[in-house]
Design a protein around this nucleic acid. Sequence first.
DNA 1: CGGGGAAGTTGCGCCAGCGCAACGCTGTCG
DNA 2: CGACAGCGTTGCGCTGGCGCAACTTCCCCG
Lengths: 232, 232
Amino acid sequence: MDIPARVTVLERVPLFKGLRPDELEAVAREAHERKLEKGEVLFRQGEDAAHSYVLGWGRLRLDQATPDGQNVVLRFMGPGDMVGTVAVLRRIPFPATPLAIEDCVILAWSAGRTAELMTRFPAIALNAVAVVGGRVEELQARLSEIATQRVERRIASTLLRMARQSGRRIEGGVEIPFAISRNDLAEMTATTLHTVSRTLAAWEQEGIVSGKRGSYLTIAQPHRLVEIAEQA
Amino acid sequence: MDIPARVTVLERVPLFKGLRPDELEAVAREAHERKLEKGEVLFRQGEDAAHSYVLGWGRLRLDQATPDGQNVVLRFMGPGDMVGTVAVLRRIPFPATPLAIEDCVILAWSAGRTAELMTRFPAIALNAVAVVGGRVEELQARLSEIATQRVERRIASTLLRMARQSGRRIEGGVEIPFAISRNDLAEMTATTLHTVSRTLAAWEQEGIVSGKRGSYLTIAQPHRLVEIAEQA
DNA sequence: CGGGGAAGTTGCGCCAGCGCAACGCTGTCG
DNA sequence: CGACAGCGTTGCGCTGGCGCAACTTCCCCG
């Protein structure tokens, strides 16, 4: 990717919102580039946070291993998302592992460079607070859900949230444009593969969602899902 | 509080770490001051985020109401914590309500002033990312816990986390220096008052924790609690 | 000092959903 | 093209801990 191409990518990244073209160019010049094939990891939980990243193309799933060896899916990330930036600024090891679920192109900056750019262009740092704040909000919402709601409602809320973040309108509903396994959903909603399977099977029966194995999940009747998510 | 007194407070606030004394003074000059009595709220969930705050003295409990009227305790906050800053920068309404559980003194800056100060002193913005990042980490940990662990382990983890954040060594163990009701604990661990009550009663029997109603909770045998939190 | 109310305790019964296990489907790799 | 591996489905039984309700204890306030 040459510099103008990078700028085109960075223009749409929330982290760099409000920067002038020449500033974006300066940021772009400092970046390294990295490609990741589906199935590879960008880094591993526990590693030293030497670089921060911005996802240019592709999708990542952010996994966190618990001390006792279980796995929790923290979030899915798409183009424009920042990765690892917080760990870099906090000078702590990466707290999770981003796994490529599609081929990805990623821009990287060293830890020192990251801090330096944010100091030089404070707007980046302000944007970073906003982005990370958004994650706090999402996590708080999930926490509330898990704390107070039944499994069925949590699955509904999770699907709606993913649709809102990454969904595409297509004929016949809203499509979530990457493969999510039942197990992924289970690990996002704090339940088991089995319960997710049963729930989705029921919803497919009723025509609320559809999507064969491997292909993308489509929410055919979002309003029905909203009803389920909101019912007392 | 005069300006030097404010500077003394701000010196110990993580958000302002690394600022020079003259910079701290500039920040202090821009602040408004606000007192809050026990039982009052600083602002209400849903209100427009017109100011950001730093807690000088006292303690707050941050509550979030769910759409269906339940309540979740997001966190307890103590001296030096920042409050509302994220909502200000994201230009969204406050997502939760901070309730004073002790008398508090709070410094406040208007939304515009907050952004301006962060731009003038980018170190503040970098610190803010780190602080908010810490919250993300804590929320992720709680999410993992709730998703994968039994109630007993979650309560143990929560108590240990609070002890780590605010605990005081005293003779006979570690004391959590503010009143936590069983209900608070229930709302933090995604369980019910009843289950918390039973669990703590059992632990008091075994001498792991102690603390009468109203007084502060003391963890007499932290290592036992760690065992419970870590056992498979 | 006595009455009211909030917070905490405890017993009991029930059920959502977990855990296990067996089976089915589908893509893929030799 | 056959067999394997990974993912998903489904049935079944069990149980953690929730929900309800009755009761106790403590604290505050008049």
